[in-house]
Amino acid sequence: MQTARKTAANPTILLLEDDLLLAMDMEEFLASRGYDVVGPFGRVEDALDALETTRVDGAVLDLNLHGELSFPVIERLRCRNVPMIVCSGYAELPELKQKLAGLPLMPKPWSPQKLGRLLSEVFEAAER
């Protein structure tokens, strides 16, 4: 599993989530864990635009954004070896599960305990 690169500043996490209340809760949770959050973004295009100008150390991505799947963002992050966590209630569907192979998945509804565990496993392992 990939780990986030440790930097002198707080690690920067891209947040892609189309549900405004969930996005605000996740943003607050990530900030409380010491991350700088880019976003939250509710559209794939906005997240891709941000990746053109901002270096990120990791990402937390909703898979389905009002019917638009976030695979373009996932592929861009994979090409850059950026670790990510994918949030979805659809990740167990066979046609999607194969495309998400090897990525840490967090089912929805999300829980702070589950996200905290995944953050430790995915992003914070390099700091130990």
Results as ranks from 00 to 15, higher is better:
Gln2Glu: 11
Gln2Cys: 05
Arg5Met: 13
Thr7Trp: 13
Ala8Gln: 15
Ala9Arg: 15
Asn10Met: 13
Asn10Lys: 15
Pro11His: 02
Thr12Tyr: 10
Thr12His: 10
Leu15Ala: 08
Leu15Pro: 00
Leu15Asn: 10
Leu16Cys: 06
Leu16Arg: 03
Asp18Val: 01
Asp19Met: 01
Leu21Ser: 03
Met24Thr: 07
Glu28Gln: 12
Glu28Arg: 13
Ala31Trp: 00
Ser32Lys: 13
Arg33Pro: 08
Arg33Ser: 03
Gly34Asp: 13
Gly34Asn: 09
Tyr35Cys: 08
Asp36Gly: 02
Val37Met: 03
Ala47Val: 12
Asp49Leu: 14
Asp49Phe: 12
Leu51Asn: 04
Glu52Pro: 05
Glu52Gly: 12
Glu52Tyr: 09
Thr53Pro: 08
Thr54Glu: 13
Arg55Asp: 15
Val56Tyr: 06
Val56Gln: 07
Ala59Ser: 07
Ala59Arg: 07
Val60Glu: 04
Leu61Met: 09
Leu61Asp: 11
Asp62Phe: 06
Asp62Cys: 03
Leu65Thr: 04
Leu65Met: 10
His66Leu: 00
Glu68Gln: 15
Ser70Met: 02
Phe71Pro: 08
Pro72Asn: 10
Val73Arg: 07
Ile74Leu: 07
Ile74His: 05
Arg76Cys: 12
Cys79Gly: 15
Cys79Tyr: 02
Asn81Phe: 02
Val86Ala: 04
Cys87Ile: 02
Ser88Arg: 09
Ser88Val: 02
Ser88Phe: 05
Gly89Arg: 07
Gly89Ala: 15
Tyr90Ser: 11
Ala91Thr: 00
Glu92Ala: 13
Leu93Val: 11
Glu95Val: 11
Lys97Cys: 07
Gln98Ser: 14
Lys99Phe: 01
Gly102Ser: 01
Gly102Asn: 04
Pro104Gly: 05
Pro104Cys: 03
Met106Phe: 11
Met106Glu: 02
Pro107Cys: 03
Ser111Cys: 04
Lys114Ile: 04
Leu118Ile: 11
Leu119Gln: 01
Phe123Ser: 08
Ala126Lys: 04
